[in-house]
Amino acid sequence: MANVERPLSPHLQIYRWPVTMATSILHRATGCGLAAGTLLLAAWLGAAAAGPEYYAQMQACLGSIIGRLILLGFSWALFYHLLNGIRHLFWDAGHGYSIPVANKSGWAVIVGSVVLTVLAWILAYAWK
C-alpha cells in the first residue's frame, strides 16, 4: 500500500502555528477538558444535595491548592470555549472569514478568556 512515493502533507509540528490553528485545536481541547470538569461540577451539586457534611468535605477538596488549580483551569476553559464558541456562531452566520479578521478574533478570544478568568477570580474572592 505504501509503496508509491507520494508527496505527503507535513505533520503538525512542521508548521509555524497560525493563531487560527491554535484557537481551533484549543476549542476541541477545552471542550474535552470541560466535559471532565462537568463531572466535578455534578459531584459538587451532589454533595450540596447530600447535606452540609458532604458539602463541607467537597468545599475543602475544591479549596485545596490542587482543587483551586483545577478550578482555575476549568474556569479558563469555560470562558475560552464560550468566547470561541461565539466566534464560531459568527462564522456559522457567514461573517468574519477573511484572514485578518479571523486572526484578530482569534487573539481577541485568547485575551478575552484570560481577562474574564481573572475577573471571575477577583469577584469570587471579593464576594467571599
Binding site: 450540596a48 447535606g51 458539602y55 469555560l78 464560550l82 471571575a120
Partner: peptide, 19 residues
C-alpha cells in the same frame, strides 16, 4: 451559563445554607 457562573462565584465562598 453567564447566570450560573455569577451565581456559583457568589456561592463559592458561602456555606451550605446559602446554596
Amino acid at each position: 451559563l453567564l447566570i450560573m457562573v455569577v451565581s456559583v462565584l457568589k456561592l463559592a465562598g458561602g456555606d451550605h445554607a446559602a446554596v
